[in-house]
Amino acid sequence: MNPTKDLTQIVQTAVERHGAQPDAFIPILLEINHEYGYIPAQAIRQARVLLHQPEEHVLVSEGQLYGVASFYHMLSVQAVGRHVVKFCESAPCHVQGGRELWRAVQQELGLQAGETDPQNRFTLKTVSCLGLCGVGPVMVVDDDVYGNVTPEQLPNIFARYE
């Protein structure tokens, strides 16, 4: 996640890599989100210019791309902190200690679900089942997965992210 990268370049590379057909829209948005951290309105405008090709019968509007970007949970149209904490709040994690852990995570970060701290360090998000229930409760920070997490481990985990 690096908002200092050149957005125009990111969009262009993503479109070139995945092609400009409709079945590439979601992969393109995923790549922009991954490279830039989120999908700003500017990226949607730029992507639309590259993807809209009436002569190829590919018609796409900014609204359509925004609709897709705001629909999927792995895509974000809002700026996020340097690190994103994703907490699984589905039932299996919930009954395996997730209930207590969730309170501890909110307390430790001083954040509610969906919030970013003023220093722009962490954004706290809740997510649905990640398919890692064998080691629940599960928490993901950026791309790092933590399983069997206990409240006592939290300070140690968060300290790894600046």
Partner: peptide, 11 residues
């Protein structure tokens, strides 16, 4: 698209 909570057989 295995997303049913508690399911990871397909994975």
């Amino acid at each position: 698209d295995e997303s049913e909570p508690g399911t990871f057989k397909d994975r």
